[in-house]
Design a binder for these strands. Structure first.
Lengths: 252, 252
DNA sequence: CGAAAATTTGACGACTCTCAAGTCGAGTGG
DNA sequence: CCACTCGACTTGAGAGTCGTCAAATTTTCG
């Protein structure tokens, strides 16, 4: 399930929508998108690609590594989403012009920039491609909604379990998950920013997950013995990710 | 600032994007959208317009009244967004096909349905209108992000203050705010679903807001003496709403 | 090795949940 | 008009979750 042919043919965009209907893109659409990438760059941990309020004329496709969407607050840091390879991270600003948040690197990343002029050409000449791009931004919105649910309903240990389950599922979709977990550069401090808890409480929550055999997290590596148990623990249903294998959504 | 001419000329869609760049729509675009509304209906409190997982061929524009986006959870109810007149509530499903959430009425509402076939025609013939529709769905995403921030960073009293500030600001944009507050059919129980707190805690938090002179909330009516104080109390910056008066976003 | 970052532990207080009980308001039938 | 009823709202008490201050330990990396 590694789709090596996609990454070879489309080195920058081969993971875009992978696991989520990428196969519905025609070869010419894939080619048009790949050709729209005007530069590929490497960035380091902690670098900010776009800042709140900035006008932008290019959008960023995450090729390798991880990024986070953050909001500035007078208090501390605040992460509102997390991104894996294949995500068109700030396609939002194509329609919004300026962003209401920052885009930060988590660990070293490789990113591709796509100019909005090129996107305008694609969208104007291919309404179906416009729908696909629109769709990909709405996936972010769906993930936002699930995060809201998670924050409203779950305690910190279960929030962390949910974060693990989601990242693992999303990495699986683009062929980067392990069979027994996944690898990220996330620290406990990052998890605190993502779960709305203090670093210290996150540390204890991770200990609890380990103690209960739900998940083990050490130095960015997550290990899970019983995936179904992890999902049960945090009421995780991957339907909201709109992956190929989970068409219907129903829970109760 | 009531824009009576818009509501007269476009009874169903006159509030769409009002206060957020509606003036950038041409008369023919406004007319095309208004003509795309194939039926207008009244619904009652608590009715569910769309359920999780349902395939949909029409989208819903909220003309009068209020609606909420909710997720099913095994525990209790969970609201992930709240909508005011002018919102194209489930335009998301035009690009997503099926929704990951429910759309529920809060109080009596008047809604207009727009078929996806009609939307496809509009989008295909007018790329700039496609951008505007896309834009309106991304506003929802921006609001989702702010809710995530709110849930991660604020205590229950401040979350409620933030909810009040947001609803008031959004009602102002479409000409429905009062000078000293706003009116909704929201109950304390609804606020609990929106803030991720228990009904009982919400009740106490409302009491605290009243005691501190931040806001008064009784039977769906909110009264605020000092709007700036309300905003300070919950770190509210309307920039994320992308309203006409707040182009730049910057906080710290 | 030494400095900086990440992780861990303990203690205490604040925030929030749940169970339980009681009050208030609008609408209904007598 | 009044008793009744249902939902919304209010209040009290005890327990669990979580934040903060402080300090110790481990890991990473130059």
């Amino acid at each position: 399930m590694q789709h090596p042919q996609e990454s070879d043919l489309y080195p920058a965009t081969g993971r875009f929508l992978l696991g989520r209907g990428r196969s519905a893109l025609s070869d010419s659409q894939k080619r048009a998108l790949e050709d729209a990438v005007c530069s590929v760059e490497n960035r380091n941990h902690g670098e900010r690609i776009i800042s709140t309020g900035e006008e932008c004329k290019v959008s960023t496709l995450l090729i390798e590594g991880f990024m986070a969407r953050t909001l500035d607050t007078h208090g501390g840091r605040c992460a509102v989403s997390f991104h894996v390879p294949g995500d068109f991270v700030d396609l939002h600003c194509f329609a919004l012009s300026r962003l209401d948040h920052n885009i930060d690197c988590v660990g070293p990343v490789k990113i591709g920039f796509v100019s909005h002029d090129a996107l305008r050409d694609i969208v104007a000449s291919d309404p179906s491609m416009a729908r696909k791009l629109w769709y990909s931004t709405l996936l972010d919105a769906a993930i936002h909604r699930e995060w809201i649910m998670k924050l409203e309903q779950l305690t910190t240990p279960r929030r962390l379990a949910h974060i693990f389950a989601e990242i693992w599922a999303r990495l699986d979709m683009v062929g980067l998950g392990r069979s027994d977990g996944f690898d990220t550069p996330l620290t406990q401090s990052d998890l605190a920013d993502m779960s709305g808890s203090s670093k210290i409480h996150v540390n204890r929550a991770i200990g609890k997950l380990r103690g209960e055999g739900i998940a083990e997290f050490r130095r960015g590596r997550a290990y899970v013995e019983d995936r179904a148990a992890l999902h049960r623990y945090c009421d995780f249903d991957p339907g909201y990710l709109y992956g190929n294998e989970h068409p219907p959504l129903q829970r109760g």
